[in-house]
Structure formats: C-alpha cells, structure tokens
C-alpha cells in the first residue's frame, strides 16, 4: 500500500476521533516523516507499539479488575507494580534474551512488561472510584457480580481505563530506542545506529520522528478517553 493512502486514512481516522485539529496534526506529521524518508521506520515503530499496547491491555485490564475487587490481591501485588515501574528498563532486556533471543519478540516482551503497570493501576482505580451508591443500586436490584461489573463498574471506569491506555502507549513508545538495542526495528533503530556512527543529523531526525508519533498517539487516545466520559461530565 502506498504511503500516501496510509497517511490519508490515518488522518481521516484521527479527524473522526478527535476533530479537525488532531486530523490536521496527524496529516502533516506523517507527511513530514515520509518526507524525511522515515516512513518505513515509522510504520515498524507503530506496529511494535500497537502490539505491545494491545498485549498490555489484554493482560492489564483483567488484572486491574481483579485488583479492584480483591483487596488482598491489591495489597500483595501493588509492590510488584511499583518494582516494574522503577526498575531501569534495560533490566527487562535481560530475561527476554535467553527466552526469545535477539530481535523484535524480545523487544516486544520487554516493552509489554514495562508498559503494563499503568493500565492495571488505572483500571483498578477506575473501578474502585465508582460511587458506592451506584454499586449498591446494582446490588439492591438483585444484580449478579457479572451484571454489576459489566453494567455499572466497567462503563463508569472507562474514562479512567482510557487514561491508562494512553499512559501505556506513551511508556511503550519510550521503550523503542532501548528495544532497538536488542534488535527491534523502526525509529528506535535509526536513533541507535546514528549514535553508534556519530551521525548527529540522522539521529536528530529520527528523534523528532519519535516525538511526532508520540504526540499523534497521545492526542488521539486522549480524544478517545474524552469520548468515553459520561455525558455532561466535564
């Protein structure tokens, strides 16, 4: 698929989600990256970030629900989450290598471990912050635990969960340069190579590319989160 079609589609999608401003931002940002001959690298980075984010959500949302409903689980595993976020991200590369070897899979694994805590935390937070009276209302009308979760708790926690998605994506993106050290492609590799070859200009270009991708992803997911917010709430 030629890049211009991809760019047009991405801009249209961003416009539908976030309005004209974000649509234009996406359009010109991606065109600029294409112009810098970084299109291929940008796509690779986006794929890595998307896969890592999707996996983080698949793991993080159910775990977050579990933490929200079980006080004991929350107390037990909360320190683990703290550790996952405070360990230097290089450390995650170590266990990944013997299992998956050098390459994109290891890079993806390390990225997931690094970026999953926010979605767990914010899912748990969102569910716990659902007003007690609303939860009680579900109980009072004879709702089962599943009905309570899917009709009351998750819908009301959705804005908070979306904030978690946004955070997770940003963290995944911040891992791309580090992931490049064990063989991931994309913009991260461009930065890593230019560091090794002392090509300041190329490195700067790739760095700007990461910033542009970050801004676009951030704005689009924030717009999604805003749409998840209940009607009339600020």
């Amino acid at each position: 698929m030629p890049p211009w079609i991809c760019i047009a589609l991405a801009a249209l999608a961003a416009y539908r989600v976030g309005g004209r401003k974000i649509g234009l931002l996406t359009l010109f940002g991606l065109l600029f990256l294409w112009n810098l001959r970084l299109w291929q690298a940008t796509v690779e980075t986006l794929v890595l970030v998307s896969i890592a984010t999707a996996a983080a959500l698949v793991i993080g949302v159910p775990v977050g629900i579990w933490f929200a409903l079980s006080r004991r689980a929350w107390r037990t595993f909360s320190p683990v989450l703290d550790m996952m976020q405070t360990l230097p991200s290089f450390v995650y590369l170590i266990p990944a290598l013997p299992f998956f070897g050098l390459g994109a899979v290891s890079a993806c694994f390390a990225t997931i471990v690094f970026s999953v805590p926010p979605v767990i935390r914010l899912t748990a937070l969102g569910i716990r912050n659902v007003p007690g009276e609303l939860v009680e209302a579900s109980d009072a009308f004879g709702g089962s635990a599943a009905q309570k979760l899917f009709k009351v708790q998750l819908p009301l926690a959705l804005p908070t969960i979306m904030a978690g998605v946004n955070q997770t994506m940003m963290l995944a993106l911040s891992m791309v340069v580090i992931a490049a050290m064990i063989g991931a492609g994309g913009l991260g590799r461009a930065v890593w190579q230019s560091i090794q070859r002392l090509e300041a200009g190329a490195g700067f270009e790739a760095g700007i590319g990461i910033v542009i991708v970050a801004v676009i992803l951030d704005r689009v997911t924030q717009a999604l989160a805003a749409r998840a917010r209940p009607h009339g709430a600020a």
Partner: peptide, 17 residues
C-alpha cells in the same frame, strides 16, 4: 431482591452514562 424490593437512594444513584 429482583422480585420484591425496589430501592431509592439519597443521592439518586443514577448511572451518568
């Protein structure tokens, strides 16, 4: 509970969404 009780709450407890 489904069959017998209806409940009305002090702060309404309506789902905002």
């Amino acid at each position: 509970r489904q069959k017998t009780f209806g409940m009305v709450f002090q702060h309404f407890a309506l789902l905002p969404n």
